[in-house]
Design a binder for these strands. Structure first.
Lengths: 333, 333
DNA sequence: CTGTTAGCGCTTTCAA
DNA sequence: TTGAAAGCGCTAACAG
């Protein structure tokens, strides 16, 4: 596609192509030649051939990113963080989407590797043995985000802690008869960690309480449908594994005329913009997903440079006190 | 990075590397050799070097995508469509983000070109002369989405029509004293087309009516703050240029205790999932952004193959009747 | 400071 | 059906 090559420039300036190459890469060139070369490049609009360069220099400055789906706010935020750091470091993103499919996630890793990326960030659905296998054998670094596993490099939200914090908050507001509206335990992060954190707070600090579990999935709709199962338990508070789930539940409660938070308190996790936009604003724990993306990228870049992962900053968790949780007082019941 | 090369495979099989190359690209290879080569490749996990291959074959199978921001549902949907078609056609996405910056958008085009993509899709902020200039001179095809301009290839939502449809709907519900809560005319699509469509319906079909304009931006917050300016006009209905804007307004109205739709009807554009999730569900026009992405990609792929753009399918517009618009009857006022 | 030279890993004539 | 050879555009010793 680029008709004009480094050789053409060299010919025009009557120098060798090495000189042009040096000019391009900041090596020694006489002032005089610099001028000439600069001029010729501008005149011709010459661009050095990306592939030839990469073929020689080995490192591609390409970073592979695998995401589970594209149209998600969370994913968007993470990507934003990744993108920021990539720009600073002159890396280009090669993005692929696993479409929530485990097998495809693996295929994407292979494909990206195959395309010569220097490293891969996988926003993973879950880390299977196959992942660990690949992790061990791949000649380029990989970092997983979204799920924990000690066999690989990962970085993620402290879901356990977020659950714990929420437990504390519910307890402070005197809720003791609670429904946890969560997702399948197949999802380690949201399904297990987040839940356990919440349960553990109560286990450790509260004497008489009652938490019932209702399972839903990540969809708004399913969560809406689960509303009737939730109210069967007649809880004073419902803790939802995500804000989206909470939104679904809220719609159900609204339709039933059940007042939030006067009759039932609800809360979620995620801190989406809409969560604060609606009435009542959802009490939630906000994760700094952008920071997550940034850190993953910084780390992978270090790994690529054969350095170790430095900063192990904690991703911040911020309890956003909305209007959806009510303090029901000591003597309730 | 790939330690094992085509030469290694050739050596292992005692054939020439040409034969291996032929095997890889579906040329003539004897059955016997095919077997051997296949085995060697599997054993070594050989992958042909992306850059070397591209250096020879010229076309990169890389598609450049420039988006204004990442953490947006709309952008996510478009990307999803793009991604689908790319996968089908074995294209890889090189994504860059203009961060809502005109100059950077231009830089991204150049950078992507420089990296050897076969074509570029630009989700543009607006098509300036500089864009047109680049469009004319670039040796690879570009398609713009999001904004119209007859000097370039573009594909976009029919914003005018969407406004017109909404106008019709508001009129049917007997609203004649309306506020249009829109964005700056710098944005041709949302700021101009969408508004004009709405205004034009009234101009052409309604005799006495009153539309006031209030300007906001795309943010939830600003729109919330503009609430007080909106109610000054005492409208029966407010049409918001996006669902997000509508959300902001709704929060304001909620806080003021103004009932939707009993006291004021509101509507938006976009058809986000949350718009149906809240109470009252927002009446809105849903755009098929995924289809938009798909079409743009099909078109650019055709352009790359030097074919003309074929299908000029209309992107569908669907009026979603939520609960936020009330028919206020004939004799109102 | 500069030019010569030797590849990077692959595809593709061309002749066998 | 196969192998030899040339070369894609670039970088990086090396010797001058």
């Amino acid at each position: 596609m680029n008709k004009v090559t480094i050789q053409d420039i060299a010919d025009m300036c009557q120098v060798s192509k090495s000189s042009v190459s040096r000019y391009l890469n900041g090596g020694y060139v006489s002032k005089e030649n610099k001028e000439k070369i600069k001029e010729a490049i501008e005149k011709t609009g010459f661009k050095s051939n990306f592939f030839a360069k990469r073929l020689k220099t080995k490192n591609s400055n390409l970073l592979g990113i695998i995401i589970p789906r594209i149209d998600s706010i969370t994913v968007g935020k993470v990507l934003n963080g990744i993108n920021n750091i990539c720009e600073e470091n002159n890396y280009t993103i090669l993005m692929q989407c696993s479409n929530l499919n485990f097998k495809k996630e693996i295929d994407c890793i292979k494909s990206l590797y195959n395309q010569g990326v220097d490293g891969i960030i996988v926003y993973t659905l879950g880390i299977t043995n196959e992942h660990i296998e690949i992790y061990k054998n791949l000649k380029i670094p990989i970092i997983f985000i979204g799920q924990k596993n000690k066999n690989v490099n990962y970085i993620c939200i402290d879901d356990y802690k977020s659950g714990y914090i929420m437990g504390e908050y519910f307890y402070k507001n005197n809720h003791k008869n609670i429904v946890f509206l969560g997702v399948s335990e197949n999802d380690k992060a949201v399904g297990v960690e987040r839940k356990e954190g919440f349960y553990d707070f109560y286990k450790k600090n509260v004497s008489n309480y009652n938490i019932n579990f209702v399972e839903t999935d990540f969809s708004f709709k399913k969560s809406y449908n689960k509303g009737k199962d939730v109210i069967k338990f007649n809880p004073t508070g419902v803790i939802c594994a995500t804000d989206n789930i909470c939104l679904g539940l809220m719609l159900y409660l609204n339709e039933k005329g059940i007042k939030i938070p006067d009759e039932i308190s609800v809360a979620g996790f995620g801190g989406y913009e809409v969560s604060s936009a609606i009435k009542p604003a959802i009490t939630t724990i906000e994760f700094d997903y952008e920071l997550l993306g940034k850190m993953a990228t910084k780390n992978i870049l270090n790994l690529i440079k054969n350095e170790n992962i430095k900063e192990k900053t904690d991703i911040s968790l911020k309890l956003i006190k909305g209007e959806s949780v009510k303090d029901i007082g000591d003597n309730y019941e």
